Simulated assay, not measured.
Amino acid sequence: MMRRLSVVVVFALSVAACGPEMPPLNFSVPNVGPSQTKLDAEVKSITVSVARPDEATGKLAFGVETSAPLWKTSLEEALTKMAIFKDDAPKKVSVAVKVLKLDLPDFGGTFTTETAARYEIIDRSDGSVIFTTDVNSKGEVTLDYAFVGMVRARESINRSVQNNILQFLQQVETVRIDRPMFPVARAPASLPATISAKGAPTS
């Protein structure tokens, strides 16, 4: 029994000496600052969901739904730091994110996680899609980061999602709030009342 315990302790110490501990899932994008661009709209809600099988563009790792709340929190944090939207603007919008792919590596020296997500900015007054984009990103972690594969895999997820959010933030600065990509078709105005025909002139 003591010998088995000693083996476990030695293994644990060797793992600890080989690199950093298991990192938590953390999608917070580093080095985000105020943007020079200002969009005349207020973000009223942010949602993150996972694609259905028929919507997915690649593999969705088991348990991917647990990433949605962290993704939402990190996106909210980044947009707040950017200060690109105006809280007192008359136009209200929603930001909707759909995770289309979260493909984790099975093994290897370099762990690469591939991520894809669709971002939409929606006008809450009529449902027009002001802006939409599909973002593809990768997160790579090499063997020199950590010897333990699970540590590299976890960090590769973090980097992949962080890179995905970052690409969206960069694209947000090009958005034209007043020119929706997919405006909602408005019903035609009601036709004026039929004008009665004039009577034939009398002689």
Rank of each mutant, 00 (worst) to 15 (best):
M1H: 07
V7P: 02
V7N: 03
V10S: 07
A16G: 12
A16F: 01
C18M: 02
E21D: 09
E21R: 06
E21N: 09
E21A: 12
N26L: 03
V29G: 08
P30H: 02
T37S: 07
K38P: 03
S45P: 00
V50T: 14
R52D: 11
P53Y: 00
D54G: 00
T57C: 02
A61E: 11
G63H: 04
L70E: 12
S74H: 02
E76N: 08
A78G: 02
L79T: 09
K81G: 08
I84N: 06
F85T: 07
A89P: 12
V93S: 10
V95K: 05
V97S: 08
V97W: 01
L100W: 03
K101C: 08
K101D: 10
L102I: 07
D106S: 14
G108H: 01
T110C: 00
F111N: 14
T113M: 01
T113H: 00
T115D: 06
A117T: 09
E120S: 15
I121G: 04
D123V: 05
S125H: 12
D126K: 08
V129W: 08
F131H: 14
V135W: 03
N136R: 13
N136I: 04
S137W: 11
Y145G: 12
F147V: 15
V148L: 09
G149A: 15
E155D: 06
R159I: 11
Q162A: 01
N164G: 08
I165A: 06
L166A: 14
L169Q: 05
V172I: 09
I177T: 08
R179K: 15
P180V: 11
P183D: 13
R186H: 10
A187W: 07
S190A: 15
A193V: 06
I195R: 04
S196G: 09
K198Y: 00
P201V: 01
T202P: 07
